[in-house]
């Protein structure tokens, strides 16, 4: 069955009551690109970060022949900058992109957002399928905001502050160095950076699981949507999140 991408109309339904899917263009290119850049860089950051925190394997032989920690740190810093750029790009697209690009924002001043939040939570807990959102549901949006936007910003800021120590007279130090004393000194900042890394990982676990579950339960093409940009919906779904306004 061919998939049409335009929205349902009453005529569509009248013509074919069994009509199953329509696909909506949701994730524009920058959202998709930044999504995967973010996904890859966070993965690299977490793995290299874990090694930095606790270097579990050690090479044999002369020190000058090895550079294990050195590489881990270099990869971490490179991934860190890539992540930061990706974060900024996505932040820009929040304003420049389509409505779905803004749909993740927790609109806690709107009763509709709260309703959607509880509604979605209950659906997940009761293992029930509810209407499909094309953009983010309130719960998903909230978790991205906390898990990626806020934690990501914290990691970027603390990471850059820690990084700025390598060049005490450099511009990075002037820009971000003040964060170290502000947050209780570099040792504490390292600890917070590490703690937050685990929270980021927690988000990733929940995110990946919920993506698989949601995609299977709602049959909304969630996973492929992050590649193609299109998500599926069915007659009767709320194709646009009502609380978005």
């Amino acid at each position: 069955m061919a998939i049409e991408t335009r929205p349902f109309t009453t005529e569509d339904f009248a013509r074919n009551p069994d009509d199953y899917y329509r696909a909506g263009y949701v994730w524009q290119v920058p959202v998709r690109v930044t999504h995967w850049v973010t996904a890859l860089s966070i993965t690299a950051l977490f793995l290299t970060g874990l090694y930095i925190a606790n270097p579990v394997f050690s090479p044999e032989g002369e020190a000058w022949k090895n550079f294990t920690m050195g590489w881990m740190r270099k990869i971490h810093f490179a991934a860190g900058f890539i992540f930061a750029v990706s974060w900024l790009t996505r932040a820009y697209w929040f304003f420049a992109g389509n409505n779905y690009a803004r749909s993740g924002f927790p609109m806690f001043w709107r009763a509709g957002w709260w309703r959607d939040l509880w509604h979605q939570l209950w659906e997940y807990l009761k293992l029930k399928r509810g209407p499909i959102h094309l953009g983010h549901n309130a719960l998903g949006g909230l978790s991205y905001t906390l898990g990626v936007v806020v934690l990501g910003a914290f990691q970027i800021l603390t990471g850059l502050a820690l990084f700025s120590q390598d060049a005490p007279t450099g511009p990075m130090n002037r820009l971000f160095g003040w964060l170290l004393p502000f947050l209780g000194g570099p040792f504490r900042v390292t600890s917070y950076h590490l703690l937050a890394a685990w929270f980021v990982f927690t988000f990733v676990i929940l995110h990946v699981y919920i993506v698989i579950y949601d995609s299977t339960q709602y049959r909304n093409g969630l996973i492929s949507g992050m590649i193609t940009g299109r998500k599926f919906y069915q007659r009767g779904d709320k194709v646009q999140d009502t609380w978005l306004g």
Partner: peptide, 27 residues
């Protein structure tokens, strides 16, 4: 586990349509 045990997710089955209300077009 509980989703699988309850057989709650049945990807092959057609999903029943609940209501026709609230359908809104894409901008």
């Amino acid at each position: 586990v509980s989703a699988i045990a309850k057989n709650a997710v049945k990807p092959t089955e057609k999903v029943p349509v609940e209501s026709s209300s609230g359908v809104k077009g894409e901008e």
